[in-house]
Simulated assay, not measured.
Amino acid sequence: MRVYVPLTLPGLARLHRAGRTDPPPLTAYAVTPALREWYLEGNEEELEYAALSRAAQASLRLLAADPDAARRRVVLAAEVPDRTAVADPDRALEPEALGEVRLTEPVPLAKAAAVHVDGVEAEADVAAAAAVVEAADKGDDDARFTVDGAADHELLWYGVQEIPDLL
C-alpha cells in the first residue's frame, strides 16, 4: 500500500540519519475505502493526490508544533505492507480523518518512493498557514482561507537519492 507520511525538514533529517521513520504509532494517509467513497468519481491518480494533500495539511500541524523548523511542508511517499497501515473504523468517515491510517511499524527509508517538499517560494504562505492551522481545524473561516493559500502551492517531487541535497 502506498502511504503518505507527513514530516518536517527536521523529521526528514531524522529519517535520513536513522534509515527509518520514527517509531509507531505514526499517522499517515492512504487511499482508504472511506477516501474512495468520499471521492466517488475520482480515478486512482486523483485519490493518491487527495491522500498526498491530506498529508501535506498534516505537515502544517507538525510545523505549528515545531517553530524552529523551516516553513516547508514535507511528505514522504512509501510502500508498506497493507497490514501495517490501519484505519480507525470509528473515525473513517469523519471528514478530518479521511484517508488517515496509523502505521504499526516504522517505514524503512528503503521503502520510500519519493519525497514531496514545498519550494522556497511557498515559505511565507506555509508559515502563515502553520500559525493558524489549529483555528482552521476549529472552523475559523479566515484561518481556513490562509491554510488554503498554502495548499495552492504544489509540492515538488524529489527522488529519495536527493534527500541529502534537500537537507
Score class of each variant (00 low, 15 high):
Glu45Cys: 01
Leu103Gln: 03
Ala70Glu: 13
Thr32Val: 06
Thr84Trp: 12
Leu109Ile: 05
Arg14Gly: 06
Arg91Met: 13
Ala69Asp: 09
Thr104Asn: 00
Ala13Ile: 02
Ala58Val: 02
Ala64Leu: 10
Arg14Asn: 08
Asp66His: 10
Leu60Trp: 11
Leu103Glu: 03
Glu94Met: 13
Ala56Ser: 15
Leu60Pro: 10
Glu105Phe: 04
Pro25His: 07
Leu93Thr: 12
Pro23Trp: 10
Ser53Val: 00
Val120Ser: 09
Arg61Trp: 09
Tyr29Thr: 09
Ala77Glu: 15
Leu26Arg: 14
Asp88Tyr: 08
Ser53Glu: 14
Glu48Gly: 05
Arg91Asn: 11
Leu12Val: 07
Val31Ser: 00
Ala18Leu: 10
Gly42Val: 00
Ala113Phe: 01
Leu26Cys: 07
Glu48Asn: 05
Tyr49Leu: 12
Asp90Arg: 13
Val86Pro: 00
Pro33Trp: 11
Pro95Lys: 01
Ala127Gly: 12
Pro67Gln: 05
Tyr39Thr: 01
Thr104His: 01
Pro95Ser: 02
Ala13Gly: 06
Ala18Ser: 11
Leu7Gln: 15
His16Tyr: 13
Leu47Gly: 02
Ser59Gly: 07
Gln57Tyr: 09
Arg91Pro: 00
Glu46Phe: 05
Arg73Ala: 03
Ala97Asp: 15
Glu123Ala: 15
Ala112His: 08
Ala112Pro: 06
Leu40Phe: 11
His116Ala: 02
Pro23Gly: 15
Val120Thr: 11
Leu103Val: 05
Leu98Asp: 01
Thr104Pro: 00
Arg102Cys: 04
Ala70Gly: 01
Asp118Asn: 10
Ala51Met: 05
Thr21Arg: 02
Ala114Phe: 03
Ala18Arg: 12
Pro10Ile: 07
Gln57Cys: 09
Leu9Trp: 03
Pro106His: 10
Glu100Met: 14
Leu47Tyr: 04
Glu105Val: 09
Pro108Val: 05
Arg54Gln: 12
His16Cys: 04
Asp68Glu: 15
Asp82Trp: 08
Asp125Leu: 09
Ala30Glu: 02
Ala130Thr: 06
Pro10Arg: 07
Ala92Val: 06
Arg61Gln: 13
Ala64Cys: 07
Leu7Ile: 04
Arg20Thr: 11
Pro23Cys: 06
Gly11Arg: 06
Arg72Pro: 01
Glu105Pro: 01
Gly19Ile: 09
Tyr49Phe: 04
Val5Met: 02
Arg61Pro: 00
Gly119Phe: 00
Ala50Ser: 12
Val117Pro: 04
Ser53Trp: 10
His116Ile: 01
Arg71Tyr: 04
Glu48Pro: 00
Glu48Ile: 01
Asp88Ala: 11
Val5His: 03
Leu103Gly: 03
